[in-house]
Design a protein around this nucleic acid. Structure first.
Lengths: 255, 255
DNA sequence: GAGTGGTCTAGACCACTTC
DNA sequence: AAGTGGTCTAGACCACTCG
């Protein structure tokens, strides 16, 4: 319907957006068929490959399900999924996508010399200046994510006192401007821990309550160079409802 | 190189497998460029779209990184990633993929009448017979995953005493033969908990130690019909090192 | 048998990086 | 300017589902 060939947005994304709109608006009802790929070709006046590329996005999001020989259907799952662990976004966007309202607060920002542990992870020199931010994110006004981030100062060496917005809702850009590298890959480690005194106070939960902890190193995967280290504590108010799909590769251990 | 057009395996998978072999064998060194897509076209005698479809798989696995205008490179990350949470596989395969040797043991198998809680989740009638399996999976001989699975008996109503292999390493097929549905989607919930007495004994850890718990409902996403319920407890011997990528969609909240 | 999605081809132009 | 990956086209054949 609403494909604009002057819009620089790729056509397949426009197609995906438009079909998604149809799903969310109820025009395509859940469990029902979406028009066939060849019909969508006629509808949007794009090639079938472009349609397929768009449908693949919706399949990946869990919104649509393509069945060989049968058709593409609207899935019944969108409201049961609230997060994805295969991609990362700003924490506040994560909270919003999970269905909550998001707020944030910077607890502290400082420049510290890299100690041995930080050096090992960020591969900096001992004593090199590193930004340290402690932030608290709220979901529906309740404390939800507590983070400690370490970023080598790099090209921002002489700046200080950044705005809450800059280090909370545009943190990825902040890391990029410090390191001069694109933040596109993160290596994360998911661990359950028990709340210590500080976490307990911040989250207003009993000491010893189990919570999710995820350390995350953003990195330049080609040079294997760490760009930043994040320590993320998730209160149990945040639910991790994720969609998983059966492995598409039958023979994972080829090679 | 080794593309076989008589092999029913899709060409793009063969291409992906072959390039992956080259990466794992060290022929393509990490950080270095893979031949360009047009060169790969000449090498494998397939179209560029087929090459691109294969490279997309490797990109998704974190093995290769394509940079617009520059080339496709071998990533430096393979040995730092050991699991994916966006797909599911048999538990023993999960353990192997994570780099451990896998063993399993059935602790109990029984048929029980569905109680209220199971009914609510599996949407069965109260009292309907349900298989209940308790299984323990080992990684490097150490207890790693404890699972309790509930599957409506369905068409296997009159059978009992299944082999360990059938319910441990071919469990997904088992669910399919019970329910008559394809197991392709799972809705999972990730929660940190503390070990109770039983878990502590099974995992040989102190009571109260935090562990990861994931409930998983396999389902037919079109009819929104639950096929099975799994309660999975992960000992901390299993590390969840996952690769995350920056969200490809800038404007998630379109529509 | 008709219609569907899955795979594949051989082109084309564009945006981007690199030199 | 040359080479790269990103997008797009207009076809084709296949495997599968369904009536």
């Amino acid at each position: 319907m609403s494909i604009n060939r002057h819009d620089p947005t790729p056509l397949y994304i426009q197609v995906a957006m438009d079909i998604k709109k149809g799903i969310l608006s109820g025009e395509y009802e859940s469990g029902n068929k979406i028009p066939s790929e060849r019909e969508l070709v006629q509808l949007y006046h794009v090639s079938r490959n472009t349609i397929r590329q768009g449908l693949k996005m919706l399949n990946h999001e869990g919104l649509a399900i393509s069945n060989h020989g049968s058709g593409t259907y609207v899935a019944n799952m969108s409201d049961m999924i609230n997060s994805r662990l295969d991609i990362f976004v700003e924490h506040s966007q994560f909270i919003q996508t999970a269905g909550y309202s998001a707020k944030y607060q910077v607890l502290s920002q400082s420049v510290i010399p890299a100690d041995e542990q930080i050096c090992r992870i960020l591969e900096t020199k001992i004593g090199e200046p590193v930004f340290c931010f402690e932030k608290l994110f709220f979901a529906d006004e309740k404390p939800a994510i507590f983070t400690i981030d370490y970023v080598p100062c790099g090209e921002k060496k002489n700046q200080k006192n950044f705005s809450e917005e800059e280090i909370c809702s545009n943190f990825l850009s902040f890391v990029e401007s410090c390191t001069g590298d694109v933040v596109e890959y993160g290596k994360s480690n998911l661990t359950p821990i028990t709340a210590d005194t500080r976490i307990a106070v911040l989250f207003d939960i009993p000491i010893g309550q189990p919570i999710l902890f995820m350390s995350e190193v953003f990195l330049n995967p080609l040079r294997n160079k760490p760009l930043s280290l994040g320590l993320n504590y998730y209160s149990n108010y945040i639910q991790f409802k994720i969609l998983r799909r059966r492995s598409e590769i039958v023979n994972e251990n080829y090679g």
